[in-house]
Structure formats: structure tokens, C-alpha cells
Simulated scan of single mutants.
Amino acid sequence: MKTIESTSNKEIKALCKLHAKKGRLTRGQFLVEGMHLIEEAKEAGRLLKVFSIEPLDLGVECVLCFQPVLNKLSVQRSDASCIGLCSMVQGRSDLGDHVLLLMDVQDPGNMGTLIRSALSFGFRTIYYSNGCADPYSPKVVQASQGALFHTLLQEVKMESAIPALRKDGFWVAATALSAYSKFLHDVHFPKKTAFLLGNEGSGLPLSLIDLCDACIKVEMDCFESLNVGVAGSLCMYSCFIQNS
């Protein structure tokens, strides 16, 4: 079994480039930390290699590393025990009946939460804009709890993605607080439904809202708005219940 003792090892130095979005896109790979995420990656057939402090039998090459080496690969503050090298998802033609559209969702926690909720409620296709938090960044991966391994994540231009979905028979609903928005509990969701969610601070531009079939909002007892991760999860849950 291969062992890496030095943080100056060429492979380790190359893998450290995956800490940056540019490095991840160049190689089409990213790193995950901890057994839970590694096992999720293995289940999805996306685990390429494991770097560990002790031998692991996961059906892929396991490289033993001294603690300083693992810590160099890690983005956590505490000592790392195992890190997995994973492949980004390959595109597919079947979108399913439910699609989530994310426009400039910048907080990694919100991004990860929405990916996790999307998988839970049957939205296995997720389109996201260039202004979103990178779904393969460590914080988003952690917040998704491995859900990203079981969804199709695709960066798109919303101006063209929304019309394309509508042409394909999807009913696309924007989420926004406006006078003409329908309350969530009054909406009947067609079989093929897509939700468009916007930035945490500025929401959705009117140009994108105008491209959608409808505009919806979550009814509340008080307060003006919900966190985008919560609002999006409620919308997907409501659609899931209606179509179950």
C-alpha cells in the first residue's frame, strides 16, 4: 500500500489545487472529508481514491498519509482522518419531473441545504447560475451531507434555461414577494414543475420573473421574508406532497 510522508509530495501539491474552484473545474474532481461523505461518494460510484491515516477497504486505492499530509489536504481545523477524491457528476438527458433553479444563491450553507432538500423531495436536477456558491466547495459539500452525489448539478444561463424548460413542458414558478404572487397553499403543481429561487439579499430580477409561468410566495403569520433555504424547501415539500 502506497504511503506519503511529505507535504511536498507532487500528488499532494496537485490535489491542494482542488481547494480552489478553478482547480476543481480543471480536473473535474473535488475532495470530501469524513467517512459519511466518502461512503456517499462510493455509493454513487464517484469515489476515485482515498487518503487515510489508516488502511481502508472501500474498493478504490487507499493511500496512507502521515498526519501533516492529511492536514494539508484538509480545510478543517482539527486533524483529518480520511479524505476522498471524487469525480464531478456527468450530465444526463433525463431531467425528471422536478427541477430546481438557483439564481445567485451565494451562501454555502443555503446552497447545501437546498441541494439536500432537493434530493429529499424529488428535485434531482438542479440548475445554478455562475453567481451561486460553488456546489463542489467544501462548505457546500458538507452542508449537503452528500446529497450532491445523487443529483444532477449543472451551471446554466437562466435567461435560456427557463424558456427551454417551458418548451419541454415544465411549469416554472418564480419565488418572490410581490402583489401578484400566489400563496403557496393556493397553487396546484403540474406533474412537471420547476422552482426558481433568487439571491439572499436582492432576490430575483424582474427580467427572470417575467420569463416564468407564475410567481409564488410562502404565507406567513408575521415577518416579511424567509431564508431562501427554508423557503425553497417549503416549496419543494409542497410539490412533493401534492404529487405523492
Rank of each mutant, 00 (worst) to 15 (best):
G203K: 01
N243Y: 04
L184A: 07
M111N: 10
V230Q: 11
R92E: 12
M103H: 14
L211Y: 04
M220A: 04
I126C: 03
A194G: 06
Y237K: 14
K139H: 14
D97R: 15
V50H: 01
E39W: 04
N71H: 07
N71A: 06
L95P: 06
Q76Y: 15
G59Q: 06
L37Y: 02
N71P: 05
S78R: 15
V63R: 10
I83D: 13
S81K: 15
C65V: 01
S137L: 06
I241C: 10
C222S: 15
A147T: 07
G201E: 06
R166G: 09
T175L: 12
S6A: 03
L114R: 08
F223D: 10
L70G: 11
M220C: 02
D168N: 13
D107E: 14
V105K: 05
N227D: 13
T193H: 09
L197R: 07
I12A: 09
D104F: 10
L211Q: 04
F30L: 00
S137E: 06
G109D: 08
G28D: 01
N9H: 13
D168V: 03
A179H: 12
F149S: 01
F149H: 05
G203H: 03
L226T: 11
S8E: 14
L70Q: 09
K192R: 15
I38E: 05
E54I: 04
S117H: 09
E224D: 14
S202I: 13
H19C: 07
P68L: 02
L206Q: 15
L206K: 14
S117I: 04
C86A: 02
K2Q: 14
F66E: 15
V228G: 07
G91F: 12
E33S: 00
G131E: 05
H185Y: 15
D168F: 03
V69A: 11
L119E: 15
